[in-house]
Structure formats: structure tokens, C-alpha cells
Write a protein that binds this DNA or RNA. Structure first.
Lengths: 216, 216
DNA sequence: TGTACATCAGTGAACGCGCGTTCACTGATGTAC
DNA sequence: TGTACATCAGTGAACGCGCGTTCACTGATGTAC
């Protein structure tokens, strides 16, 4: 286990050239996923697209899902940017509302960038695939925890009964962001303008985090 | 077009027996979908489950997706219960918070009931399938419009600048409900208790609808 | 109530495509001296 | 700098499974008289 070296299917340790081919295959997988359903994404096509042969694909990945899993892991790593953004944000007063708007934008950008991979992650998660499920959990967990810290700090002391659970509130807000981001098209279809959805989200985030009415 | 009669593949008009077989196939499709991914759901298996033959399946549906489409349409019809629930709700004071809690519960129940079909609807929508996309839009639209009416009525007159767009706020809230409902398992995984998520959602709904802080 | 005919319903068995997958091989690259 | 050998990398071509799909047929049900 000490050696977590990359290995080709037949046990070879890939050199420069091999690794280049492998990442070309990953790129092509990502590209094709943008225009093709997982169901219709065939090893042969990916290989052709990467101007190589199916046999080569199998040298690096046991199947298409495994290649996407690698892409998903790469994506998961880059969520820490979102989390850092949340941690760096200021949640007081007008600045807080700006932070909420900015977070909304970042989320939507992120989703846009990884839309095809996210599609598969969601699909596989829904079907009970453990590996994708873990990636999904891990990747959203970091942002959610960061946001829950913000909630914990910004929330006023409970006036009445028991306060809300910060992690629950953060989780719900992240769920909101995630779903709006992934169904933007549906919003437009209903005649909701992106700007309006953005402001509604920012309001809800501000409410959720601070417990206060936003300074419009 | 006047005759929108059900027709079997070869043009026959199904009688009692035929319609019974058809709905048995639908039932089995729904059942199997609960434990099988769309990818692995084969005509042969559905047919076997319904103790009939693949040839019979093709008598009533051109393929598996089409059968699921029928199930999705049935589901879409039953969303009007959700919409009616929203319309019947009272959003003032303590009762308003109760309404928010109740709506949350209804949503989660609904999602639980149709989880397998919703999975496919989301998947197909994500992949750009028009038919499923339309069903999704239609089914969420009714609730969203109902909720936007509530927002319009309950929202205080704009103090400062421009008010939020009610439809946008409603859409965002519905997105939140939908995503939390479909990823309940993920919440538990993070150690968030269902009760806490429920309260956080109700708070956000109350905020979104009334623009006021909830009466804890 | 019974018989004959028409139509509805279901299916066994087979065909064939398409794709996943593999293997024995050729070609490319690297390195030792 | 050149040559030989080892290892890395890539692939053509084929095999075969599994499934979608169909067709010609048998069986069931309904109805007319």
C-alpha cells in the first residue's frame, strides 16, 4: 500500500507517454459527456475521439464509469475554493448580503463548469453507487461545514426556544444552491430571470446565516 | 386526433384483458426501478416479472423509457395535491410556521413515494430529454405558482428598493425542498437529524414567503 | 343455450447488431556501455 | 555518438455475449344468430 503508483491494466508502470495518453482519454471523456448521455457514451467512441484504440482505453480504465470517477475526484478537490470563499466571507451588514450574492455566483459558476460530471455524480448517487455517493458527500461537506461555521458565528443568541442546528441550516442552503444551479434552464423556462433567482437566493442565504432580515 | 384511443403496437385496440396486462407491466416497471438502475432495467426482466414475454411488452411500449414516461405522467398529475396544500395554507403568524412545516413534510413524503421515477425524470432532464423535461417543469410549476401567490400576498410592501420577484423566490424554495427531499440520505450521513433539517427548511420557507422572522 | 367466426392477446424462438473485451503482435522510447 | 536490448505503449482484428426486436403462430375472449 506504500506504493500508490499508477498502474496500467497489465501491471506496467506508465511513463510520460502513457500518462499523457491517459489524461487525453480523461479529457475526451469529459468533453463527450457534455453532449452525450452516460448511457450512450461508449469506450469505442472515447478512444476514437482521443485518436487511439479501445484496447488502449482498457489499459488505463476498467470501464467508462471509472474514468468519470477520476474526473469526479478532480472536481471534488476543486470545491475547496468554494469552501475557502465561504470562510473568507464577511457576514455582517451590507457586506454580508454581498457575500451571499457572491457565494451564489460562485456556486453557479462551479456547477456550470462541471455540469456533465455532476450529472453523472447525481445519477450514480441516486442509484446507490457508493463511490460516487462518497465523492458527492465529501465535496459538499467542506462547503457545508464552512457555511455552518458562519451560521454559528453570525446567528444571534436564541431569543425564544431552541436555536436551529447550524449544520442543518447550512445543508439546506447548500441543497438550495445546488439544485438551482443544476436546473437553471428550468428557471428560465418558467420566465424567472437569472438576476431575480440570484437575489432570492442571496436573501435566503443571508436569512439563514444571520437570522436577520437582509439590508435589501 | 379526435380518437386518442390507446393502441397496441400493431394497431389493435386493447380490451379489458390487454389493458390489464399493460398496467401490470407498468407496475412491474415501477417496482423494478426501485431496486435497479435505469441502465440495468431490461425489457426481458420487466416482462418476466410481469409473467409475460418481451414480445408482449413491445405490444404496449416501444421501449423502457416510454413506460417510465407514462409513470412520470401519472406522478405529475398527483402533484396537484401539493399545490392545493399550498393554496389552502394560512401564512400568518404561528399558523404560517405550521404551514411551512407541513409543506416540508408533504414534499418529503411525495419524494419518498415517487423516488424511483423522480430519479429517472431528473436523469433524463439532465441529459436534455424534452419529454421528461416537460413533465418535470409542469409538475413543479403548479406548486411553484401556488407558492408564488402566497409570497405575493404575504410579503410586506417593499420598504427600500425593489422587492424580490415572488416567482423567483418560490422557485428557489421549491428547488430547496426538492433537493433536500431527494438527498435525505446524504443529510443523515453528515449527522444532520431529519428533524433539524425539517425545522431549517420551515424557517427558510417562512422567511421566503412572509419576509418576516418566524415566531420560533 | 349453443355454435361459428372475428378479433383480441400472448408468445417461442430466432435473428442479428453492437459493443465490451482480449490477445498476440508491432512500434516507440529509454538506457547502458 | 552509436549500437543493442529492455521495457513501455499502442493496436488490429476477432470473439462472443447479451439484448432488442420481430414474426408467424397458438390460444383466449367476445359476439352474432
Amino acid at each position: 500500500m506504500t506504493e500508490s503508483e499508477l498502474r496500467a491494466a497489465d501491471g506496467r508502470v506508465p511513463g510520460r507517454r502513457g500518462r499523457a495518453t491517459r489524461s487525453r482519454l480523461l479529457e475526451c471523456t469529459a468533453e463527450m459527456l457534455a453532449t452525450t448521455s452516460l448511457r450512450d457514451l461508449k469506450v469505442i467512441d472515447i478512444a476514437r475521439e482521443a485518436s487511439t484504440s479501445p484496447a488502449t482505453f482498457y489499459q488505463y480504465f476498467p470501464d467508462v464509469e471509472s474514468a468519470i470517477l477520476v474526473l469526479a475526484e478532480e472536481m471534488a478537490v476543486s470545491t475547496n475554493a468554494l469552501a475557502q470563499h465561504v470562510r473568507a466571507a464577511n457576514w455582517k451588514g451590507k457586506g454580508g448580503y454581498e457575500s451571499a450574492l457572491a457565494l451564489t455566483d460562485r456556486f453557479i459558476e462551479f456547477w456550470e463548469q462541471y455540469r456533465p460530471v455532476l450529472r453523472v455524480v447525481d445519477l450514480a448517487t441516486g442509484e446507490g453507487d457508493r463511490r460516487f455517493n462518497q465523492i458527492r458527500s465529501r465535496m459538499l461537506n467542506e462547503v457545508t461545514v464552512a457555511l455552518s461555521d458562519a451560521v454559528r458565528l453570525a446567528q444571534p443568541k436564541p431569543r425564544g426556544d431552541e436555536p436551529l442546528d447550524p449544520m442543518a441550516t447550512a445543508g439546506v442552503l447548500v441543497a438550495m444552491l445546488a439544485n438551482v444551479a443544476s436546473h437553471r434552464y428550468g428557471f428560465e423556462f418558467w420566465g424567472i430571470r437569472t438576476g431575480d433567482a440570484r437575489r432570492s437566493m442571496a436573501h435566503l442565504i443571508y436569512w439563514g446565516v444571520t437570522g436577520q432580515r437582509p439590508p435589501v
